[in-house]
Design a protein around this nucleic acid. Structure first.
Length: 842
RNA sequence: GCGGGCGUGGCGGAAUUGGUAGACGCCGGGGACUUAAAAUCCCCUGAUCCACGGAUCGUGCGGGUUCGAGUCCCGCCGCCCGCACCA
């Protein structure tokens, strides 16, 4: 029986939009919070609406989509939402550069990108779409901010902040990279401003402890967060100085105190400033410290430099005076900005001491008789104390406790835990963000905007032709009456960091009442997110802030969960070769579309001349090694593009884009279509071997998808397809075709729907059940045994499964090839691994 | 400099976690069909040697453990990512 639907090639141009419309009409991807099915919340990091989607988005959202569709077919109620991280600087930059309004620019981008996402056939619940620039969203955010304020987690303080002279905005310390704005790249200046802060440090210990439970997060992300939080325990104590003052230092190694040979302070430490005021050499040295490279790598490989202040610091136990240096490797904003330096057991101190001829004393050794062993480099490892007076013979841990005890008894210091993590500065002097809902009244001070006056919306008539904050300059917006006394007052003109927007969007996706940010019970239905997928670049800031914000809301009693993301997956980048030509001092780049690539090299289509082939790196506009998703969808269809995103490379690794690869995917789409066409309703009879292959494949593909090992699932599906093409019509074959159609449905949903319909099924393949596995069919009744002689493969045997060891051994020894290899030597030992191999040792 | 990760054919990568290395895809080669092309299908495709039966070598390099190592241990080399000189 032939089915004429399959006589023509599968046409994505027709099928893609038809099925996208069908899914919309059936509203089949809208999540029901009241369903009694098991719930699965699959979430990919929502995009910033920059203009058009890029290939990285396609990879990210395809992975999530396969998981979401798979979960649905497995009978879960799936929440798979999408929205827009819509506040941020690029909109203001566009406003400044092109004279467009940030809102209009953002909404145009959202329209374009939404249309592009729809072309890919993602199973998204668009009814829950969020744009963070929507007053409905940021109004709720203002309400949450006020809740945190009431709970004492919000405060203002005057502090030196990072002022970005290009963006005219303040950056959090964490957002300054190498002394430059992490987005603008402009050199950051220090300015004092009144800022709003969130008390993330209140949760430092809890954020650290929580990492221990995040077993389904990549180890490296947990490690990065741990290091970022940076807990250390040590001793803070004061040295008496020769000039009569005191100097507080912090050390994590009080056990090495007898090895201290000098004291060092940061260039911007008050002591250094004091010395500089009367000593111009010191002032010059401080200036020198502020020059030079600012990246971590540069700083760490830079030569250690110091300036001897001439001041002495009295050692608390030996009463010896140690020289006090100003040093370029001491940081002001960690600990007290001053250290006791122990060259024997800290490499930086060692380098410094070597340069300035200061004593290097061993105070930790593997054993007491190693006390005099010379030090060629600093030894940071464990051991026992030597050359350390009353500490001699103690372990590092005991010595730490002993020193802290004695210093505390002498009341010159105390044991102290120091965190690297600092409170989160959320103030931004920008227009395109969430207005901070406060009013400044001369009489009443800083007053929160009452809830019934929320949202505080942004004014629409703003001027971007001059730099600075348009809210500050707006003729009327900032004038408001004090909610307490009713007198004329001023609105807060700072807006919130956009990381606040992305710190709770996953809650709003789960529950969207009109009158409050979310419903506690409904959030509890969905959270935590079962699988969160996004880029590694958010390993620290976004993920830590989201973890903090969720804890803060739990602290306020608004949610029950503390950890928002149960599993995290960080996907790799999409890469491509770079094509370029040298033009004098400049490198001219060409897009892959402008270049003809062959095995010999690459030529520019326009002039037929060679271009240089560069490294395979992340697709970026500046290097022009990009492909536009919309172009490739038009050429190959959404399913081929999706299939490519899942094939070959493991999802956490980089995926090299290739024209040949996408062509292969396009061919496979047609190959499957032809295979569907071979479904023969009249065929009967069973093919046991094929049944087994089918069920093994379903089993393996299920496990692969659950582990996000899409590349392995793809390989299995290729394998089953090839096996099927070699078989004759039978009931087994029909079942296999049906199974393969359903298995590719999450990956190539349009093809699957078209095939499902053509084969006469009612309803949508997207709503169909995932094929069942019969465990009995997973077991083979025959196995192939490797026969080795002295560990080298000589022969293979195909035998019945479960054959006893003795019989296996006899069969192996009977093998002609094995006998030839043994060549009459004495068999000393035979190792038999049932079901696997026989190894004969002579 | 510190922390983390990775090195497997021409390429992307598999390998049941100590048990037949190279699954699957791409590229390439040969053939079938066709007037021809596209499309499709079949075969070959790690290296070297070969009497065409096979043999030897082979998972960055050098050692080691083991009946057996891509996998475990020690020491190198190279590449990638992150970074905050955190005392």
């Amino acid at each position: 029986m032939s089915n004429s639907r399959f006589d023509v090639r599968f046409d994505p141009g027709q099928a893609d939009s038809r099925w996208q419309a069908a899914w919309d009409d059936a509203r089949c991807f809208e999540a029901d919070s009241h369903s009694d099915k098991p719930k699965s919340y699959v979430l990919e990091m929502f995009p910033y609406p920059s203009g058009r989607i890029h290939i990285g988005h396609v990879r990210n959202y395809t992975m999530g989509d396969v998981l979401a569709r798979y979960k649905k077919m497995r009978g879960h109620e799936v929440l798979h939402p999408m929205g827009w991280d819509a506040f941020g600087m690029p909109a203001e930059n566009a406003a400044m550069e092109k004279g467009v309004h940030p809102a209009g620019w953002t909404h145009d981008n959202i329209d374009t990108m939404k249309r592009q996402l729809k072309q890919l056939g993602f199973a998204l619940d668009w009814s829950r779409e969020i744009a963070t620039c929507d007053p409905e969203y940021y109004g709720h955010e203002q309400a949450l901010f006020l809740e945190l304020y009431k709970a004492g987690l919000v405060y203002r303080r005057t502090s030196a902040v990072n002022w970005d002279p290009v963006d005219m905005t303040v950056l959090a310390n964490e957002q300054v990279v190498d002394g430059r704005g992490w987005r603008s790249g402009a050199l950051v200046e220090k300015r004092k401003l009144n800022q709003w802060f969130l008390k993330i440090t209140h949760f430092a210990q809890d954020l650290l402890d929580g990492l221990g439970n995040l077993q389904n997060w990549p180890e490296k992300v947990r490690l990065m967060q741990e290091n970022w939080i940076g807990k250390s325990t040590g001793l803070q104590f004061a040295f008496d100085l020769s000039n009569g003052e005191k100097l507080e230092v912090y050390t994590t190694r009080p056990d090495t105190i007898f090895g201290a040979s000098f004291v060092a302070v940061a260039a911007d430490h008050p002591l250094a400033q004091g010395v500089a005021s009367t000593n111009c050499d010191a002032a010059k040295f401080i200036d020198l410290c502020k020059q030079g490279g600012t990246t971590a790598a540069e700083l760490e490989t830079a030569e250690k430099l110091g300036f001897d202040t001439g001041i002495g610091a009295k050692h608390p136990f030996t009463a010896e005076y140690l020289p006090v240096y100003i040093a370029n490797f001491v940081l002001m904003d960690y600990g007290t900005g001053a250290i006791m330096a122990v060259p024997g057991h800290d490499q930086r101190d060692f380098d410094f001491a070597t340069k300035y001829g200061l004593p290097i004393v061993r105070v930790i050794a593997a054993s007491a008789d190693q006390a005099a062993a010379p030090l060629t480099e600093a030894e940071a490892g464990d051991g026992i104390c030597v050359n350390s007076g009353f500490l001699d013979g103690m372990s590092v841990a005991d010595a730490k406790a002993e020193v802290i005890k004695r210093i505390e008894a002498a009341e010159s210091g105390e044991g102290k835990t120091v965190w690297r993590l600092r409170d989160w500065g959320v103030s931004r002097q920008r227009y395109w963000g969430t207005p901070i809902p406060f009013i400044h009244c001369d009489a009443c001070g800083v007053v929160p905007v009452p809830n019934d006056q929320l949202p505080v919306t942004l004014p629409e008539d703003v001027d971007f032709s001059i730099p600075g904050n348009p809210l500050e300059r707006h003729p009327s917006w900032k004038h408001a009456d004090c909610p307490t006394c009713g007198k004329p007052a001023r609105r807060e003109t700072d807006t919130l960091d956009t990381f606040v927007n992305s710190s709770w969007y996953f809650l709003r996706f789960a529950s969207q009442p009109a009158d409050k940010p979310f419903d506690k019970a409904e959030v509890a239905q969905w959270l935590p997110v079962e699988q969160y997928i996004g880029g590694i670049e958010h390993a620290i800031l976004h993920l830590l802030y989201a973890r903090f914000w969720t804890r803060a809301l739990a602290y306020c009693g608004l949610v029950e969960v503390k950890e928002p993301f149960a599993s995290l997956f960080t996907q790799g980048m999409v890469t491509h070769e770079v094509y370029s030509r040298r033009d004098g001092p400049r490198e001219i780049y060409f897009t892959p579309g402008e270049v003809e690539r062959s095995s010999e090299g690459a030529v520019l289509k326009a002039d037929g001349q060679k271009v240089d082939i560069g490294k395979v790196i992340k697709m970026s506009k500046s290097k022009k090694n990009v492909v536009d998703p919309e172009d490739i969808i038009a050429d190959y269809g959404a399913d081929a593009v999706r299939w490519f995103m899942l094939s070959d490379s493991p999802p956490e690794r980089d995926l090299p884009w290739s024209e040949a690869g996408i062509e292969g995917c396009g061919r496979f789409v047609q190959r499957l279509w032809r295979l569907f066409g071979q479904f023969d309703g009249d065929a009967s009879g069973e093919d046991k071997a094929l049944d087994r292959k089918t069920h093994q494949t379903v089993h393996a593909v299920s496990a692969d998808i659950e582990a996000l090992s899409f590349n392995k699932a793809v390989a299995r599906l290729y394998e089953l397809t090839s096996a099927l093409e070699k078989t004759q019509p039978s009931a087994s074959r029909n079942e296999a075709i049906r199974a393969i159609l359903l298995m590719v449905s999450p990956m190539m949903p349009h093809l699957a729907e078209e095939g499902w319909e053509a084969l006469g099924h009612d309803g949508l393949a997207a709503m169909a059940a995932w094929p069942e596995v019969d465990p009995a069919l997973l077991v083979e009744d025959e196995v192939t045994i490797a026969v080795q002689h002295k560990g080298k493969l000589r022969d293979t045997l195909t035998v019945a499964k479960g054959l006893p060891k003795e019989e296996l051994e006899a069969l192996a020894l009977a093998s002609e090839k094995v006998q030839r290899s043994i060549d009459g030597a004495e068999v000393r030992k035979v190792i038999v691994v049932p079901g696997r191999l026989v190894n004969i040792v002579t």
